[in-house]
Amino acid sequence: MNKKNLREEIILRSGVNPKKCMKCGKCSATCPAYDEMEYHPHQFVNMVDTGDIEPLLNSDSLYKCLTCFACVDRCPRGVEPAKLVEAVRLSVIRKQGENHLTANDIPALLDDETPQQLLVSAFRKYTK
């Protein structure tokens, strides 16, 4: 998929208009996963907007977002960065063999108290 099409695809899928961003950085200010990320929420918005999406596709940052929606609720312009992160992630994991989590990974993660919810959520986020 060429650069332009991927940008449009991500914008359509997420329903996010990155042009609304006024570059205040409040999303990155409030993000609880900031330190784990190579690209931070405000950079996601800018990179999708400018079509510089390739680095995002290859970055682990896609898997660090907690979908906690702090950036969505606190953005003064209603940009909803978390939805962009998810749309970019789907561009990767929807491809054959690109699942970020597989059933084989599970046993190592389990303990006596692990709630089903944890595994179900993780699969939904990391696997297609």
Binding site: L12, R13, S14, G15, T67, V120, S121, R124
Partner: peptide, 11 residues
């Protein structure tokens, strides 16, 4: 099962 977490993407 509800899926544990909502997928925000519209497609």
């Amino acid at each position: 099962c509800c899926g544990g977490v909502f997928t925000t993407s519209r497609d």
